[in-house]
């Protein structure tokens, strides 16, 4: 990586594509599989995670010089848990239905390795602006990933997108897509797709080199 051109924009973008937390780093799989049976759930989960990511990165970066090393992980977890609790109450206030369908997985954002991972690997080492940009990028990448699962699963599993009928009334839904098995298959298929893209890119690069 060219260090000199490391603008905030680059930091933001790498989370979405090059270092996508889900498709590239294969992190935080639990919510990706669990709550993506509909587009709405995916969006809410994506936003909630991004919110927690940004807020905790902000505070971790802000206090990075004050927190002693020995207690840093404990502090990060505390900060993260705080914002997860906040996010949970906000979602509950906005819509009980959504909160219900996401179930315990909102609380489980606490143990999403992406967040602790970013806090430890990035926010604790960089100033606030970069940390927030990084968090935003990772959050966007995560949101994109859950959304890409949610779209496929809701479209095939229900014939709708965000509740709006797309495939018409006579479409036969594939129930498996909203069942756990479908979650594994769709995520597996997306990873396969990205493997294929990367392989193709590599092959093209090799051809150019030759």
């Amino acid at each position: 990586m060219k260090a000199e051109q490391n603008t905030s924009m680059d930091i933001l973008l790498k989370g979405i594509w090059k270092e996508n937390p889900v498709f590239v780093q294969v992190l935080g799989m639990c919510p990706v599989l669990a709550v993506t049976n509909s587009v709405i759930n995916s969006i809410v989960m994506g936003f909630a995670t991004t919110f927690v990511l940004v807020m905790s990165s902000f505070f971790v970066s802000l206090f990075r010089k004050l927190i002693p090393r020995q207690v840093r992980i404990a502090s990060y977890i505390m900060i993260i848990a705080t914002f997860v609790t906040v996010a949970e109450y906000i979602i509950q206030a906005i819509s009980l239905e959504v909160h219900k369908s996401l179930g315990a997985f909102i609380s489980l954002i606490v143990v999403n390795c992406i967040i602790l991972g970013r806090a430890e690997a990035f926010a604790s080492k960089y100033p606030v602006k970069e940390a927030v940009m990084d968090a935003l990028g990772m959050g966007a990448g995560f949101t994109l990933a859950v959304l890409s699962l949610g779209v496929v699963r809701e479209l095939l599993g229900n014939g709708t997108l965000a509740g709006v009928s797309i495939m018409g009334p006579s479409f036969e839904p594939w129930s498996i897509m909203i069942l756990p098995g479908g979650a594994f298959f769709v995520l597996g298929a997306w990873l396969l797709f990205f493997n294929w893209l990367r392989e193709r890119a590599k092959r093209q690069q090799e051809r150019v080199m030759v």
């Binding site: 036969e172 594939w174 129930s175 498996i176 897509m177 069942l179 098995g181 479908g182």
Partner: peptide
């Protein structure tokens, strides 16, 4: 098993 899960009615 895939069909069973996808199209339980049919």
């Amino acid at each position: 098993a895939f069909l069973q899960a996808a199209f339980p009615v049919s």
